[in-house]
């Protein structure tokens, strides 16, 4: 597993944004954002390879705990993507998500995280380009902020 060593090494290493390969966790709702990410793929829209996507049925499934746990396990950034307002497959799940993530941004700040490490974005099934743009932007944001300040302590 030599190729992985680069990733692991960068974390404890120089921390310079040049070699830093951030760990970004993306939660996508099944109906809009996951399909938007699919469209980005079908359209061959290239993006940085540092995000890992978890599919949930609705962005409202993203328990605030999932966000905290992700940061606890070393995520450098968490992106939650859902349907546009008024477009939720489950009528209004995304409105719940919007409120929860607004609170979570305040909360992670209390823990010493830059609130920009958590991002909420609406990506519809037709917005492959927006998904790409979001991933590129968010990767750059996280790269600029550098590795997570959390080192595994309590």
């Amino acid at each position: 597993m030599n190729s992985e060593a680069v990733h692991a090494g960068s974390h404890g290493g120089d921390g310079g944004s040049e070699h830093f390969e951030p760990k970004i966790l993306v939660f996508c709702c099944n109906w809009c954002s996951y399909a938007g990410a699919d469209l980005a793929g079908v359209s061959r829209l290239q993006m940085p390879p540092y995000f890992r996507t978890i599919r949930v049925m609705c962005s409202a499934r993203v328990d605030p705990e999932f966000v905290i746990r992700a940061f606890e396990k070393g995520a450098d950034g968490v992106l939650v993507a859902g349907c546009h307002p008024a477009d939720c497959h489950y009528i209004g799940g995304n409105y719940r998500t919007r409120r929860r993530m607004a609170l979570m941004k305040m909360l992670i700040q209390q823990f010493g995280f830059d609130p920009d490490r958590l991002r909420l974005e609406w990506v519809s099934a037709g917005e492959g380009e927006k998904f790409q743009k979001t991933i590129i932007e968010f990767t750059n944001t996280v790269k600029e902020m550098g590795p997570t300040p959390y080192k595994g302590g309590v």
Partner: peptide, 15 residues
């Protein structure tokens, strides 16, 4: 929760 957290942990694991 367990499944999604396991997925998330696996994603962030150092290998």
């Amino acid at each position: 929760d367990a499944q999604l957290l396991a997925e998330s942990r696996a994603a962030l694991e150092e290998v």
